[in-house]
Design a protein around this nucleic acid. Structure first.
Length: 946
RNA sequence: GCUCGAGUGGUGGAAUUGGUAGACACGUUGGACUUAAAAUCCAAUGGCCAUUAUGGCCGUGCGGGUUCAAGUCCCGCCUCGAGUACCA
């Protein structure tokens, strides 16, 4: 009987679906194990072989854990809100929900063919109202919360209100907007309700504020910092400009320190932790307030707050620099300097973000004419503006210490500003000196002779005494803009009364995305939801009603923005625990049983987006007592990218002639991508297919210069992408070799975390392994299924048990590539031993089952089992079968292995040495010399020196 | 620039705490079976030199070092990849 993988795989995929084999139980007595994949955005292009890599790895792990007796949660769903479906809708008028549905259907077909053990009964889709009801609900919880720094956790907004009522906000230690006015309890009570709402908004964990945002005109929306790469949009590469807009923001900065600290709790890849650490960007230093001199300018003394990591160098300050956008600039600039400053501001405003990034070498700036007073020396310090100071970081102003900071140094040199030296024994004639460890301060009054750390302490003490500064920790992490001017996203559960946002009560959720005629912004520049005609909130009826009913008494306008892509993905891992719950986001029973994700597999590109936002929401839900763990995923693995192997044909420059790769010689040729589907494993082009393909119509009549009757293409490893015609789909591999072969081969390619090239040719190795394994169970006449009850030999058991040991270790270490090699060795050995004993072949089927589940189920059934192999106990490793009576020792001379020698394992070092020295080959190697030393490592090696 | 990761045959890769470098595959070559092909099986396959079997020398990006012994540890470089970028 031949290995008919098509029939077998179809049969078992149907069986698993019908029997719901992989549905997880929420009320199990078994120990839980939660294996999660990052859910995909269902794009129109479908899956290529690179996508399932992580899914296969997690599936192997999930199946392994089932064999180990765990109740495994292994769900899958779709991050189904997003730009491509909307762009498609703009172009074609097709509703994004329809496109999305079709794409999901295709994804599901492709996924099903690979034989994953997903619990599909728990599928979630972020664009499903039943799901985004809870996204909206969490948004409301954030709105109704503030961050209490004293308790270091989020609290209900009502506790803040009662603080205001009792003490005003003077004593409140909260994370809030930069500038909040101070008020007493009595003042608070006297404020109008609107004023109170405005003030509360400055404390809420999600808040509406006019912020500088990254506006992308081409996409017609704002972007978060992590959605911008090199100054252009991540999607599409469009320019991004700074713009002030009223937007919802998330006060993620409240969690900066905890997001940093709790990285030590999770087993995540170090590079990922590093990039989160960098992104959060904690720096310790001091905030110092300088006052402008009232002797010049308007005569008013304005405070300028700066942040510095080197307060110890305060006596080295010889100028200050403000960002061109800094609000003080217009107030302090002297009449004489006004023209120059304004010209500079105009010039920098014109430069795009990209230009600024591309050109960091050029030093520019302008003098304001104003001076600040040094807090200690009382000397006047000139105030400049320059675009090397960023408005968005710190306070947008710096105290410049040219002797201790290279940028300040370069700026000072360029504008001929003095560079006072405050470091003992350091030459600063060529460059600044920034080494904290070697710092000894001089020329600095009370700091003279102090090293860095002591000087910092002292100066902060003195600043506090003056009331002009204090120690401060600064974070680079900004609050996250949460509004998008898009259609295909979660609507906010928000309506506006007198311009103030109001939350819709939770019992009326979800607020369902309205229908619109057009998916573009309105003519007045409002977001696409501005096109909706039924998009107003009736507070009496508690429902969405036509806009015509808006009277601002009972019927109010609804929010027109939608939520960003990361909203729905920031808690989906918790929702999977109880996905059908209509009363709660998840029940406490479910979350207390499943707790958190034990293993999360996905791409490293989500390091500072999804993975940071998810940790933020998790901590918020933790503070609210809704989840038991402050971190949602214990272990995380980044799977590497599978690159494509592009194929090229070569056209001779200026001719319609294509020349085979090895005949190019010194001809001048132009390489052209050719679809890899037209190339066979020997790199030969399918000439007929090529000529018939409409893509290559230009070459229909081309001349071909062939070698040995064929056309050999060139190959190069590139990113797998449609535009490079190097995409290989899993469907075609499943069709030709089967899902089990695909699964094995994806693992066999190399370590999970590494990026590696796909080459379909290599799949024949794992495919013939499966055939070989099949034959092991079918060695009767004409290949009929035949397994004997004979007692296995010592060799059989040795092969089996070393395989059990290695495979179990490999899975625990996520070294899936080496276990495939181990299976091959095992089957090769058993075949050589002509083993067909049930006692060996039955456990072997279980070992292979996580990797190649279809063939394993089929063999398991043939072995007489009536239930799925998926919960069969993993074979137990018995060390006794591996015990050897002798060991083949490598005998080395001066570290080089010369020959091997079989010796019993239970003899002493001395006996080994004696046996080795007595060997004829030893004497031959020594050629009469007496060894200086003989190293014997029992069980390992013998090395003879001399 | 900074941070992190990686360099091993023609190719993908293996090598547990320093202990037989190149497992397992792909590819290539030769052979068996076959009228033929496919499929399958067997053998060889890091480089160089030598040969009658036996052998010898070199070899894990480069240069040093530690060690009886280094792909693995230490120091200094080179190359590639990823992230980040005037962060005060």
């Amino acid at each position: 009987m031949t290995y008919d993988f098509r029939k077998i795989e179809e049969k078992w995929q149907k069986y698993w679906a019908e029997n719901q084999t992989f549905n997880a139980e929420n009320d199990s007595q078994k120990e839980k194990f939660y294996v999660l994949d990052m859910f995909p955005y269902p794009s129109g292009a479908g899956l290529h072989v690179g996508h399932p890599l992580g899914y296969i790895a997690s599936d192997i792990y999930a199946r392994y854990k089932r064999h180990k007796g765990f109740n495994v949660l292994h769900p899958m769903g779709y991050d189904s809100f997003g730009l491509p479906a909307e762009q498609y809708a703009i172009q074609t008028g097709q509703h994004p929900a329809i496109t999305t549905e079709a794409n999901i259907k295709r994804y599901r077909e492709q996924l099903d063919k690979i034989g994953f053990s997903f619990d599909w009964s728990r599928e979630v889709r972020t664009s499903d109202p039943g799901y985004y009801k809870w996204t909206q609900w969490i948004f409301i919880q954030l709105f109704n919360s503030w961050y209490n720094k004293d308790a270091d956790r989020a609290e209900d907004i009502t506790s803040l209100i009662s603080l205001f009522e009792n003490e005003g906000n003077g004593t409140v230690n909260a994370v809030c907007d930069e500038e909040v006015e101070l008020f007493t309890a009595d003042e608070w009570k006297a404020f109008s309700p609107k004023k109170q709402q405005q003030l509360l908004l400055q404390y809420r964990l999600t808040y509406l504020a006019e912020t500088e945002v990254n506006w992308c005109p081409a996409l017609g929306t704002v972007l978060a910092n992590d959605e911008i790469v090199n100054g252009v949009s991540e999607r599409g590469g469009h320019p991004v400009v700074r713009k002030k807009m009223t937007q919802w923001s998330m006060r993620i900065s409240a969690y900066s320190q905890r997001l940093l600290d709790d990285l030590s709790m999770v087993d995540w890849p170090q590079p990922l932790k590093d990039s989160q650490t960098n992104w959060i960007g904690r720096s310790e230093g001091a905030s110092v307030t300088f006052y402008t001199s009232s002797l010049n300018g308007t005569g008013e003394a304005f405070p300028i707050e700066v942040f510095t990591t080197r307060p110890d160098t305060i006596f080295g300050v010889s100028f200050m620099v403000l960002a061109p956008e800094h609000e003080l600039v217009s107030k302090i600039t002297t009449p004489e300097q006004k023209a120059e400053v304004e010209a500079y501001i105009e010039a920098t405003a014109k430069r795009s973000e990209r230009d600024r990034l591309a050109d960091v070498k050029t030093i520019t700036g302008a003098f304001t004419g104003a001076h600040a007073i040094h807090p200690f020396s009382k000397e006047p310090i000139p105030i400049w503006i320059g675009d090397y100071v960023l408005a968005g970081y710190g306070t947008g102003a710096v105290m410049s210490v040219p002797c201790g900071d290279q940028r300040d140094y370069d700026f000072a040199k360029h504008f001929n500003i003095p560079i006072p030296n405050i470091f003992e024994g350091v030459d600063i004639s060529e460059e600044a000196f920034a080494d904290k460890e070697k710092t000894v301060i001089t020329n600095s009054d009370f700091l003279n002779g102090l090293p860095y750390k002591k000087a910092v302490k002292r100066v902060i003490f003195e600043l506090e005494k003056l009331g002009q500064g204090k120690g401060k920790i600064n974070y680079r992490l900004r609050d996250a803009v949460f509004s998008r001017q898009r259609y295909w996203g979660e609507p906010f559960p928000v309506y506006y009364v007198d311009g103030m946002p109001q939350m819709i009560a939770a019992e009326h959720l979800p607020i369902v995305l309205p229908e619109v005629e057009k998916y573009l912004p309105t003519e007045t520049g409002e977001p696409p939801l501005g096109n909706a005609t039924v998009w107003a909130w009736d507070v009496q009826k508690a429902e969405v009603v036509p806009n015509s009913a808006i009277d601002n008494k009972n019927v109010f306008p609804l929010e027109l923005n939608t939520m960003p892509g990361w909203a729905g993905s920031s808690y989906y891992f918790n929702r999977y625990m109880d996905p059908k719950n209509t009363e709660e986001v998840f029940s406490q029973e479910a979350i207390n049983y499943w707790q958190d994700v034990d293993l999360y597999i996905g791409g490293s590109e989500h390091a500072t987006g999804h993975l940071l936002y998810s940790r933020f929401w998790q901590k918020f839900l933790f503070d609210k007592g809704l989840v038991p763990k402050p971190e949602f995923a214990k272990k995380l693995i980044n799977q590497g990218m599978i690159t494509g192997t592009s194929a090229f044909v070569y056209r001779i420059e200026g001719e319609n002639t294509l020349v085979s790769k090895n005949l190019i010689g010194d001809k001048s040729v132009q390489p052209l991508h050719v679809d890899v589907a037209l190339v066979n494993p020997s790199d030969e082009l399918d000439l007929d297919g090529f000529k018939e393909n409409p893509l290559y119509a230009d070459f229909k009549d081309a001349q071909f210069i062939l070698e040995d009757g064929g056309y050999v293409v060139g190959r190069e490893v590139e990113k797998m992408s449609k535009s490079k015609y190097n995409v290989v789909s899993p469907d075609s591999i499943c069709e030709e070799y089967g899902a089990d072969s695909l699964r094995l081969y994806e693992m066999f390619l190399g370590p999970l975390e590494q990026s590696k090239p796909w080459n379909t040719a290599g799949i024949s190795g794992v495919h013939s392994f499966l055939k070989k394994m099949w034959r092991l169970y079918h060695n009767g006449p004409d290949g009929v299924f035949a397994v004997s009850g004979t007692v296995p030999t010592a060799d059989n058991l040795k092969t089996l048990h070393k395989t059990i040991k290695k495979v179990a270790e490999d899975i625990e270490n996520f070294s899936f590539n080496t276990s495939v090699a181990t299976f091959m060795i095992c089957v090769n050995e058993l075949a050589a031993q002509k083993c067909n004993s049930r006692e060996v072949l039955e456990p072997l089927a279980i070992l292979v089952s996580p990797y190649a589940p279809h063939i394993a189920e089929e063999l398991w059934a043939k072995l007489g089992h009536r239930t799925s192999i998926s919960t069969a106990p993993f074979p137990k490793f018995e060390a006794k079968y591996l015990i050897e009576s002798s060991k083949e020792y490598p005998i080395s001379f001066n570290g080089k292995m010369r020959f091997k020698m079989e010796l019993p394992v239970d003899i002493t070092k001395e006996e080994i040495e004696a046996a080795v020295m007595a060997h004829a080959k030893t004497q031959e190697q020594l050629q009469g010399r007496t060894p200086k030393k003989v190293i014997v490592v029992p069980g390992k090696i013998v090395n003879i020196v001399g």
